Simulated assay, not measured.
Amino acid sequence: MEKLIKFLIEKRILSFKFISSLRYALKFRKWPDFKEPRTINEKLLWLEFHTDTSQWTECSDKNLVRKYIKDKGLEDILTKQYGVYYDVDDIKFNKLPSSFVLKTNNGYGTVLLIKDKTTVNELELKAKLKQWLKEPFGYKTGEPHYTRIKPCIVIEEMLVADPSISSSLVDYKFWCLNGKVEMCFVCTDRDIAHHSATFCAYTLPDWTRREDWMSPKFKSEGNIPKPSKLQDMMRYAEILSTDFPLVRVDFYEVKEKVYFGEMTFTSNGGRMAYFTEEVLLEMGGRLDISNIKHGS
């Protein structure tokens, strides 16, 4: 089925809305309700297909979003950027530091953590990057705002995780509805190669773990310590979410310094199953779209 969906999207035989709805139906065994959307999944899909999402494209672009961050006065939370390349052959590895992060500006999972560049086969690496740039991200998932991003390779500094807490950087994902932070969805022990991670949710600002918010498949044990810069991250998230009815803003904290991760408007393509149905409905109820102007 996935291959068929990919084929139909690439050939433009079906609309994005139909493909997105089909994927939703395959996940939840029902079609999304666009006339009276109720859950957060349905409302984010409604926003995708009934409003102007041109700014979503800018802020979903892992390179262009940096301008948005700077314009909001938050340049200090950006990681160091070593280069942006639309042609992989332009990358000069001999001029890069010994460790860095390679990623596409438009995809999911297209990330490489280079801990020691002397161990990397440059030809093989460039071949992988060229393949990534050819992938039509957004078509297969039914997310048209991603398809408007011009693909490139972004090279940034590598942030180091605290192994006592997580094998990967702790990813603090702040859900913002109508410009206000509602909760923090935390991702730890991420395995990029196998697309796996551990998830949990916390109330704000008290940082109470709410395992009951998670669906059975995503329940986990353990507790993530309250980040020292939680109040700063909450403030940054609300500054960055001001222009949008719905957005998830992600941060990292390394040695008590906050770093911007990314902004996401259609989490899991509008097919989130991390939360229970009750939580999805509650989040949807808190998102007011009644006065939003139709833009597309």
Rank of each mutant, 00 (worst) to 15 (best):
F18A: 03
P37V: 09
D250S: 14
L204Y: 07
D52K: 04
G138C: 07
Y274A: 04
S220H: 03
R271Y: 11
L169F: 05
R271M: 15
C187N: 08
E143L: 12
C184H: 00
V279R: 00
K229W: 08
D243H: 15
V247E: 04
K255Q: 14
C200E: 01
S168E: 07
K67R: 15
F16R: 00
L177P: 08
T264D: 11
S241T: 00
P37K: 07
E156V: 06
K255A: 14
D191E: 10
L8S: 14
N223R: 13
G142P: 04
L281P: 00
D90T: 11
K150A: 12
P144H: 02
I69A: 08
R248E: 09
L240G: 01
D116A: 10
K255P: 11
Y108I: 15
V111Q: 07
L230Q: 06
F244K: 04
D171A: 13
P144W: 02
K30Q: 15
E282C: 04
K35D: 09
E253M: 11
D250N: 14
Y68K: 05
M233T: 00
V254G: 05
W207C: 03
D191T: 11
Q55C: 10
D189V: 07
L159N: 04
K130R: 15
K150C: 10
S290Q: 01
T208H: 10
D116E: 08
E10F: 11
H195M: 15
M183K: 03
E262A: 05
R66C: 13
Y68V: 01
K128I: 12
A273F: 03
L74I: 00
T276K: 01
K150Y: 13
K140N: 15
H50W: 06
N106K: 03
V120D: 00
Q81C: 15
S167H: 08
T53P: 09
Y146A: 03
D212R: 03
L281N: 02
L45H: 08
H145K: 02
W132G: 01
P163D: 03
S20R: 11
T203A: 02
L64T: 01
T264E: 10
T57W: 12
S167A: 07
K134Q: 14
H50C: 03
V279L: 04
S20A: 15
W207V: 04
E277V: 12
I165M: 06
G261K: 00
C184I: 00
G261T: 00
F275N: 00
F18N: 01
K67T: 14
K27F: 10
E256K: 12
P225A: 07
I165R: 02
F218C: 07
D191Y: 14
D206P: 07
S215G: 07
W207I: 05
K173T: 01
L133K: 03
L4T: 06
